[in-house]
Structure formats: C-alpha cells, structure tokens
C-alpha cells in the first residue's frame, strides 16, 4: 500500500518536477531564457498546440483518439485565409473556420460513435481526406493577401500578453470548467472510464462521444483561424502532425490513453513542457534533432511512470 502511494504520487507530480527542473536548467545555461520577452514567446508558441491539446483532451478522456486535427487546422486556416483578404468582415472567416472544424469533428464523432469504427481508423481517414480538401481548395498553393486587421489578431497583445495566449486562456478556463463542474463533463469521464457502464447508467453515450470529437474539431477550427493570422498566410501543408504534439501534451500531462483519466492542469503543463523544450533548445542553439530525442524520451518516461503508478486490478 505504502509503495503504491509513493509511486502513484510520483506519477502525479513527475511532470511538474520535470518541468521545473527543465526551467531551472535552461535558466542557468542561458539566462535570457527567463527574460520577459522570451516568456512571451513561450506563451505565443504554446497557444496553438495548447488549444488543440485541450480539444484532444476531451476526445481522449472520453476514450477516443483524433488523428485529424492537424489537417483540420490546415483546412480551416485555408478557408479563413480565402475569406480574410478584405472581401468579408473578419467575423466571417472566424465563423467559417470554426464551422469547418466543427463539421470535421462531428463527422469523426458519427463515424466512431454511430458507425462503430475504431477512432484511429476513422480519424486517419478524415486526416487524409481533409488534407486533400485543403490542398484542393487552395489549389496546392499558399493563400496570401490576408488583411492587416486579420494579421493583427495574432500579432497584437494586451498589457504585454499576446492575444494568442489570451485565446488559449479562454479555452482553458471554459474547458476546465466544463470538465470539472458540469454534468456533461462528468459524463465524458464516465464514457471513457467504462463505455458499457455509462450506457447502462442511462447516459446518452453516442451524444457524448460525438460531442467530444466536435469539440476537438471546433478547437482545431479556431486554431486554423489563429494559425493563418500568425503565419500571415493560409498553407495547405501547415500543421502537419500537430495532432501528435497535442496527443503528446495530453499523455505527458497525465491523460490516460485508455480513457477516463485526465486533468486540465496536467495538459497545460504538458503543453508548456513541449514548448519549453523546443524554445529552450532553440535558444541554446542546439541542433533541432535533439528536440526530437528529448521529446520522445519524456513521452515514454511519462507514460511508463503513469502505468507503473497505477495499481493493477486483478
């Protein structure tokens, strides 16, 4: 019993320990890491992956998995860029990007919850198809010419805090509230914890599962809108493998791939950890190949400790 508590506590706080240690090491190696200017960078760089990770969190907690968010970001970003060239008020590309993401998400959800397809297969399908759609709509070329006002969304800041980070914070607050406080949130956990049990308890599991994919899609749409603003162009090839970073943030942050477990705080730290690794190694001027190695090691160790920390039920 004692032993189990120690290791489960370790698994709970492992990610925080790693995070703090990393920050300290980086600060010692390169004091400019902790300068306000770079902290703002980290916030900016964490924003899009953070928003995606929060969408992914809903899906994974409900027992699913979404490979398609990267493609959805690109698709929504292309649509936003096409509509954001001064031809419409800014609200139009914003809403269209969200709706496009939502549509992909609902499609994923229906395939998984109604069509009974494994989430991996269904979202692999949409990942490929939606990427194709992005290339088709953009004719394979980057979409240029978005308005100054649109660019400004990602480039501006309020009281020194970048707008992107403000979007992220809003997403974090809403998602955390929904998961922790609402009946809906509780049922998301129940579906992922034991789908059959949730069904028998009278929960509309189909709705819950479709809706988690819809949330992931919606947030991918938002990310696409912001992404276009940040890079000032709509790129059909953008956000390649962003789903992997989102999944990494979740897993490292303690969201269990088998569903039913996960807390927003962990995902925030997971997102920051990934960003800090990239940012820190960039600042150190270390070859970017190291980033991959460090990230990979942290994923495996985090999950290993997570698995070991859980008592196996017989």
């Amino acid at each position: 019993m004692e032993k189990k508590n120690v290791s489960s506590r370790l698994s709970q706080y492992f990610i925080y320990i790693i995070f703090v240690a990393l920050v300290i090491v980086l600060t010692i190696l390169k004091p400019s890491f902790i300068q306000p200017g770079n902290l703002v960078n980290i916030l900016k760089q964490a924003s899009i992956n953070g928003i995606l990770a929060f969408g992914m969190m809903f899906v994974i907690i409900a027992g699913g998995f979404d490979m398609s968010v990267g493609s959805t970001v690109a698709f929504a970003g292309i649509l936003a860029a096409l509509l954001g060239r001064g031809n419409f008020p800014l609200i139009v590309p914003f809403l269209v990007a969200l709706l496009a993401g939502l549509a992909v998400g609902i499609l994923n959800g229906i395939g998984v919850a109604v069509g009974d397809l494994p989430p991996f297969i269904m979202t692999l399908g949409t990942m490929t198809a939606v990427r194709g759609l992005a290339l088709l709509v953009s004719n394979g070329k980057p979409v240029t010419g978005i308005t100054k006002a649109y660019r400004k969304i990602a480039a501006s800041s309020v009281a020194g805090i970048p707008m992107l980070a403000i979007f992220l914070v809003i997403v974090i607050i809403i998602c955390s509230f929904v998961l922790a406080k609402t009946v809906y949130g509780r049922r998301v956990y129940a579906c992922g914890g034991n789908l059959q049990a949730a069904k028998v308890a009278g929960i509309n599991t189909t709705f819950i599962r479709v809706s988690t994919f819809a949330i992931a899609g919606l947030l991918a749409g938002l990310s696409g809108f912001l992404m276009t603003s940040r890079v000032t162009i709509g790129q059909p090839t953008a956000a390649e493998s962003y789903e992997m970073d989102a999944i990494t943030a979740c897993v490292v942050g303690g969201v269990s791939m088998s569903g039913g477990v996960g807390h927003p705080v962990g995902v925030i730290i997971g997102t920051l950890l990934i960003t800090v690794i990239a940012n820190g190694l960039d600042i150190l001027g270390v070859s970017s190949h190291w980033q991959k190695i460090v990230k990979g090691v942290i994923i495996v160790v985090a999950v290993l400790i997570d698995v070991k920390g859980k008592s196996k039920k017989d």
């Binding site: 949730a198 039913g260 039920k313």
Partner: peptide
C-alpha cells in the same frame, strides 16, 4: 453480470 464499474472515478 459483466458490468465493471468505472475504475478511475
């Protein structure tokens, strides 16, 4: 009969 509880809740 085969219903398991939700272990992580």
């Amino acid at each position: 009969q085969e219903l398991n509880p939700i272990l992580d809740m």
